[in-house]
């Protein structure tokens, strides 16, 4: 499959480990501009760890990580921060700063990294909250809203600086199917509208089939990625039993004893 779109994120033979404990090794991947890239795998296989290393929270023990062709970890901390400004991250439970209102949460990155005037920032905050349908919650505290709303507010914060790459950690975890489907549509709309690239960690099959067009499948036992490709392709064409079982919701009979 030849994809002519430019590569935004690229990993070459990366090993992720906490001390002596190896989480995943031999990770090689290319995330193309404008794609929705899914990180898949069973629980505990290191999906979130891979995401952490992509957003610069965990340094790989070996291998190379390139952002737009620039080696991410070779630069100084200031250069990494500069690269991170191009990232937006939606954490699993929103990770809103609990001492601020929803509006202040979205405004903080704008106040920190732009010279915009307060009324301009307020306008942009309203816009970002409008995108995710959370305008009415602008002056509420994170503790006053539901889990799904917190996630949407987290998404508004993630897109505050119009990022090039958006990372989602389990966006549909803990959401009802309708809200989750709406969030999927929102992700697609934002991808098309903002022209962003999206990396998504999820094991919500319906949402993966719906939105993702590329991906990587991590195996918990062998600790290496065992398949590359879009979830739909993997579902229809992958012979790897692990992947097949995952994509078809089968119980892994051999694995159970």
């Amino acid at each position: 499959m030849s994809d002519t779109r430019p590569t935004v994120l690229s990993m070459k033979d990366v090993t992720l480990a906490f001390g002596p404990k190896v989480i995943q090794k031999n990770i090689t991947l290319d995330v193309k501009k404008g794609s929705i890239f899914a990180v898949m795998g069973g629980s505990g296989c290191g999906k979130s760890t891979l995401l952490k290393s992509m957003i610069g929270l965990l340094r790989p023990t070996t291998g190379e990580y390139l952002v737009d062709g620039v080696p991410y970890w070779d630069g100084s901390e200031a250069e990494r921060t500069e690269l991170n400004h191009r990232f937006g991250v939606l954490f699993q439970s929103g990770a809103l700063w609990s001492s601020m209102t929803i509006g202040e949460n979205v405004a903080l990155p704008l106040q920190m990294f732009t010279d915009l005037k307060p009324d301009v920032i307020r306008r942009l905050v309203e816009l970002k909250l409008g995108f995710v349908g959370m305008l009415q919650a602008i002056d509420l505290q994170p503790s006053e809203i539901s889990g799904g709303m917190r996630k949407r507010a987290g998404l508004a914060r993630a897109i505050a600086l119009d990022p090039d790459v958006l990372f989602f950690d389990e966006p549909s975890a803990g959401l009802d199917p309708i809200t989750s489907a709406r969030l999927d549509d929102l992700i697609l709309n934002l991808r098309d509208g903002l022209g962003a690239t999206i990396v998504i960690v999820s094991h919500e099959l319906s949402s993966l089939f719906h939105i993702a067009d590329d991906g990587i499948f991590l195996d918990a036992k062998t600790k290496i990625p065992i398949a590359h490709g879009s979830p739909r392709d993997l579902r229809d064409h992958c012979d790897e039993p692990q992947v097949h079982a995952f994509m078809h919701r089968e119980r892994d009979e051999e694995g159970r004893n």
């Binding site: 309203e126 305008l135 709309n189």
Partner: peptide, 19 residues
């Protein structure tokens, strides 16, 4: 253009009710 339309369609056409 489609991207602008998609983003604009997400937005409500009434201002938020002030709490």
């Amino acid at each position: 253009p489609a991207p602008m339309r998609q983003l604009l369609d997400l937005l409500p056409d009434v201002p938020a009710v002030k709490p």
